[in-house]
Design a protein around this nucleic acid. Structure first.
Lengths: 353, 353
DNA sequence: CTGAAAGCGCTTACAG
DNA sequence: CTGAAAGCGCTTACAG
């Protein structure tokens, strides 16, 4: 009495009826369990493939407690600005998760809500098996919240007080800025400025430390000066003003390290506007290697942070964490220097050619 | 006999027990139904808020048949390349969906699978309530598949054979390239080349049509020539060779329209390498307004396609479609011209200054 | 206005 | 090796 089933809903029930088997058996056959007669299994697998049967994800979630989703709390930026790394980050994360049979959920924050509300809802609703967080602050309440929950999470970046048990992957900004400062010292620069940001972000702290370390290790430490300057990250006007002030000083720096490429671009632009020649009068080194860096003359020297690969590492890490196969908890990814045209030897002082 | 409940799982059951109410009533109170005593409702709402109760999403999905998810089939690009618009697209889509109480699921394609397999699984598993598709081909099997299913979908772009019932939002590339060609004609250009792509994408077709239309409407139509050239979209070397050939011709074009900014950048670069001055010897107009356009000298004239806003429109559209409040089905977004330095009057022929 | 029951589509012990 | 039953956590008719 095999009825011809109309091609309605592709549920287990339909499939079981078509095959004259119980739902139980069909489910087991599809799940790859060993205790199913191979003849039965083949029939089931064949029928499932033919009908493009895919288990209902909600039902599966409900019973297994696993959603197969990883949430990314989306760090939104207000309209005129956009995150130059977001596309690569999501591409890297998405493809690594797909390779591990997981999907990525983007949890954006609507105007009416806060990031914490979104995070809370995402976690409490059991929507996701794990969470990825970016843009980590020196003290980050999101991290604290996640620590207090059972849910696995990986952060891109770390807090200043980050714990042994925290699971993070970060770009080694300290090493990069250490290297950049050493490079400038070796090129004879003695007045170096670091354009940093006012926001309480860990990466700022870490990068500043790299520069300080390099300066402290300088052989001619008494002849070398470092000044730090802080601008609101997304206030270009303020940054511009700061740079202009800095470059108008009688004893202006011969090299500026910029915390990000965005800042470096502003420095370069202002320097040009003031008639300074880069790199002859002023060296500039940025960080990030945004697309503009390669085409702006004379080519912005900066560090590439391999966003896509780093995001892929994060994807694998979070799945490892969910599956309990975690070895390492913390990992620094080395950025690499992209030497282009904005850095060079310090100008000779007092004896202009 | 109100027991003190341990702060274990935040399920409806726990909440109901704490309040000495039935699960049914608690659910109804939270759902905002009218037939619940207001005193009861207040108690329930208060307790739920206090305990940060969030309904289990899988259970909700299973019973309502709605997931609250919108899927974006991620158009992955192989490693050296990356989509310059992806970040903005996802930001715009994500935030508009969040405003409408939906989340975005990124369905990436793992190396071992095809886009169609991913799409099929996503749709058949009931994972999402709607789908967003980008990079639409002239004939697109993904679109055909979705048409054959009940599921709502919106495409960014359209097929060449797109139907009345299809739901798409596209940038008006025809209008933009029409305007660009008219501009070049008005500047006296008579030999114009269009660098297009070899792939069967609708946007290519549409943009070419805009140029043709403008040329056909030229008053001095007999003096004007248009040549079309095709390069593999992601083969920069091929593109470079093509441009070089084109510009070495005795009767080389005085203006090149590039289908995308990526191509425009290559054209600009090759022109510079050959000692041609842009825009004096050659005008170039691109499309897309990628970040490089603003900083590459002398500033790439191009069209901005407002990716983020367009993606936001798509977000609202797909939710409208799910909620059945759809008015319009198709919509063209007007890109706007960003006049920078790469276009200018045609060089005088035969009488060099 | 409130509660007990049924059921969404699966998976996982538990019997046979 | 296969099937009937229970249950994941909700919502929605159906009674009272």
């Amino acid at each position: 009495m095999t009825k011809t089933v109309s091609p309605e809903k592709g549920s287990l029930k339909t499939l079981a009826r078509e095959l004259n088997l119980s739902i139980t058996t069909v489910s087991r056959a599809l799940g790859g369990y060993s205790d199913v007669a191979s003849a039965t299994r083949e029939r089931v697998v064949e029928a499932a493939a033919r009908r493009h049967y895919v288990p209902n994800s909600a039902a599966k979630m409900l019973v297994t407690g696993r959603s197969g989703y990883i949430g990314l709390l989306l760090p939104l930026m207000n309209e005129p600005f956009s995150d130059p790394f977001l596309g690569d980050f999501i591409a890297g994360l998405g493809e690594s998760l797909a390779a591990r049979q997981h999907d990525l959920v983007i949890n954006a924050v609507a105007p009416s809500q806060t990031e914490m509300q979104v995070l809370r809802r995402t976690v409490e609703s059991g929507q996701v098996d794990g969470i990825v967080l970016t843009r980590i602050g020196e003290n980050d309440e999101r991290v604290e919240f996640l620590r207090s929950r059972r849910i696995p999470f990986v952060t891109h970046g770390r807090t200043l007080t980050s714990k042994e048990s925290d699971n993070w992957i970060d770009t080694d900004g300290e090493q990069a800025f250490f290297a950049a400062a050493e490079l400038l010292l070796s090129l004879g620069h003695q007045r170096i400025a670091l354009m940093s940001i006012a926001e309480q972000m860990t990466f700022r702290h870490v990068r500043e430390r790299g520069v300080s370390r390099a300066l402290q290790g300088a052989t001619n430490i008494d002849d070398v000066s470092l000044t730090l300057h802080y601008t609101q990250r997304f206030d270009q006007d303020q940054c511009r003003r700061l740079v202009r002030e800095l470059l108008t000083q009688p004893q202006r720096p011969t090299a500026i390290l910029a915390l990000t490429d965005d800042i470096a671009l502003i420095v370069l632009n202002e320097a040009n506007a003031m008639g300074l020649s880069v790199p002859d009068d002023l060296s500039i080194i940025g960080f990030g290697n945004i697309p503009q860096a390669a085409v702006v003359p004379p080519g912005l020297s900066t560090f590439d942070q391999s966003t896509r690969q780093t995001a892929a590492l994060i994807g694998h890490r979070i799945v490892d964490s969910i599956e309990g196969q975690l070895n390492i908890q913390q990992q620094l990814v080395q950025p690499f220097f992209v030497a282009r045209g904005t850095h060079g030897p310090a100008p000779h002082k007092g004896c202009p050619a």
